[in-house]
């Protein structure tokens, strides 16, 4: 290793390693807690000292904590909300990007404003609404995954801004040419823009997914039935009911929750890097 290498490349690795340590230590702690059979705050350290699968077993065997059921619920909510959110946002983004209409600017502004209002603050009104909805249509009431998903779909247009930004960078000549060839607006949207916008759809999908999987404030109010809970509210309940003893089970559940997300992130990595900003810069 020459001095020159250190000056030009080596220091970059030093910085990178510092960041890696910063990023990884808390994760190691969770791993260590998950495999530590004692499972208390006091007995857990960064470096795993003991190894046991007892917490994972309890996740799958304790009927009071139907982890597989929670996982299923979470996947359903995440998938439904993500798909609806990305699709609705993409459609609206198309309108904002390609059409010039009255109220376009103010519409975009209003969207931003509404998105900044935390839905949680309207929780009492939401609760009353879902209660009423559940009396009329029990399948959509409290303690149903469908009703909870619907509430989260209130943020259906959350990704409009990001997707619109990306659409803006796709040359209009492309769709104009298609229109000249006799394609309808719908064909342009579904056949030309959506395929080209795959990176941003992947990114916004992930953003939506991460947002939904971590939501527990509303879930803890809407989902009280053990079998209707999502992972977030279920795991939160585990740690909240006994912080002293349940760290291990909580950590095991946390690992199982995070694993699929991490894998998804790794798989979509190249999209993430490209999708967020590629558009705006090329412009």
């Amino acid at each position: 290793m020459t001095i020159r290498w250190w000056r030009e490349v080596g220091w970059r690795h030093v910085g990178g390693l510092v960041a890696v340590i910063f990023a990884v230590v808390p994760v190691l702690y969770v791993v260590s807690a998950a495999f530590n059979p004692l499972g208390t705050v006091v007995s857990t350290d960064v470096v795993p000292t003991q190894f046991s699968l007892v917490h994972f077993r309890s996740l799958f065997e304790d009927p009071a904590r139907p982890f597989p059921r929670w996982l299923l619920n979470t996947v359903v909510v995440c998938a439904a909300v993500t798909v609806v959110q990305v699709f609705s946002s993409a459609m609206a983004a198309y309108a904002f990007s390609r059409f010039r209409f009255r109220g376009r600017r103010s519409g975009l502004l209003t969207l931003l404003l509404i998105q900044m209002f935390p839905q949680f603050l309207a929780v009492i009104a939401l609760f009353t609404m879902v209660t009423e909805l559940g009396e009329a249509l029990p399948a959509l009431g409290l303690n149903t995954i469908a009703g909870y998903s619907l509430v989260l779909m209130g943020s259906a247009l959350a990704q409009v801004w990001l997707i619109k930004g990306y659409f803006d960078t796709i040359p209009r000549q492309l769709d104009e040419a298609a229109v000249v060839d006799g394609a309808s607006q719908a064909t342009v949207f579904f056949r030309i823009l959506l395929p080209l916008a795959r990176p941003i759809l992947a990114v916004t999908g992930l953003l939506a997914f991460v947002g939904v999987i971590g939501e527990f404030l509303l879930a803890s109010i809407f989902l009280t039935d053990t079998d209707s809970k999502t992972l977030a509210v279920g795991l939160y309940g585990i740690i909240e009911s006994d912080r002293s003893n349940n760290l291990g089970v909580f950590a095991a559940g946390a690992l199982m929750t995070a694993l699929p997300v991490v894998l998804l992130f790794q798989y979509l990595q190249r999209y993430i890097v490209g999708g967020l900003t590629a558009g705006s810069v090329k412009d």
Binding site: V24, V30, V210, I213, A254, F265
Partner: peptide, 13 residues
């Protein structure tokens, strides 16, 4: 891949 980890773990955890 490694630096992504904090973002991929659900926030409340």
């Amino acid at each position: 891949s490694i630096l992504l980890l904090p973002y991929a773990i659900p926030g409340f955890i």
